[in-house]
């Protein structure tokens, strides 16, 4: 077991090292920081609730650019290794395919969390300059973004196991968008007269990850309290979704011929 953990750690560290050399990530990060800064500019256009506008724009930028980076790096996870033929020398060593996926995945999550940390520093900096409130809710909301990105990169990892990066990107984006509206779909279904509609939307909400459960922008902007149990539940949900997607990804990847 310790040997497996050590292999996973080696692969995760290596993936992190590989990913942070990707210049496209820095471009995306620059844009994200620019958008966070733009929040200040947009806030000046309003006479009221400037703090709210500033933090709303900045947090949304973090979530959107974080999602873009997660999908961008996640969809190429397997394809890039096969394309570069680096996977052959790794999997011919005592490394199982599941350990390979988990190691690569953890490396990407670490990369994303580093990016998120950089964006969070930008957010806190801008908030301090604008004298906008920063409190526990702010950090809970940023932590929830980290969980959402971990789920998203697990989704992208799953699709990268059998699809080209372009298709995997489309599928992941579709999951991301649906993941943010399953609650609304369920609400629409509940209001419907059709029993079939009610059942279908309820099941959709159950089957697909509810990514809105990681969206605490409103709580952060208005400094509304977020209880520990609420955060713990979101964390449990996030980890469960990651495990579920990675398990399916491993099963798919296990059957794949690496030609």
């Amino acid at each position: 077991m310790s040997k497996r953990l050590s292999v996973i750690a080696v692969l995760a560290g290596h993936t992190l090292r590989d990913a942070i050399r990707n210049k496209v990530l820095y471009v995306l990060l620059m844009f994200a920081l620019l958008m966070i800064g733009m929040g200040m500019l947009l806030a000046t256009l309003s006479y009221v609730e400037r703090d709210r506008i500033l933090q709303d724009v900045a947090l949304s930028s973090i979530r959107l650019f974080g999602a873009a980076i997660a999908i961008f790096i996640g969809v190429g996870l397997v394809h890039r290794e096969i394309d570069r033929r680096t996977i052959f020398t790794i999997l011919s060593k005592p490394v199982s395919r599941a350990d390979f996926l988990v190691g690569k995945y953890l490396g990407l999550v670490a990369t994303l969390w580093l990016m998120l940390a950089a964006m969070s520093i930008g957010f806190v900096g801008v908030s301090l300059v604008a004298d906008a409130p920063i409190g526990p809710s702010t950090f809970a909301a940023l932590g929830a973004v980290g969980l959402e990105l971990a789920v998203l990169v697990a989704i992208a990892t799953l699709f990268s196991c059998f699809a080209t990066p372009f298709l995997a990107g489309c599928y992941s984006l579709g999951f991301y968008l649906i993941g943010h509206i399953t609650r609304d779909l369920r609400a629409i279904g509940e209001a419907s007269d059709s029993e079939m509609m009610r059942t279908a939307t309820a099941w959709l909400h159950r089957i697909l990850p509810d990514l809105e459960s990681f969206n605490w922008t409103i709580e952060a902007v208005h400094q509304l309290p977020i209880s520990t149990s609420e955060f713990a539940w979101a964390a449990v949900m996030g980890v469960a979704w990651c495990v579920a997607f990675l398990t399916v990804a491993s099963l798919v990847f296990e059957r794949r011929d690496l030609r």
Partner: peptide, 13 residues
């Protein structure tokens, strides 16, 4: 077991 694939590629960084 050791394995050398044809035209091996490695992480060039």
């Amino acid at each position: 077991v050791g394995f050398l694939p044809e035209g091996p590629y490695f992480y060039d960084f």
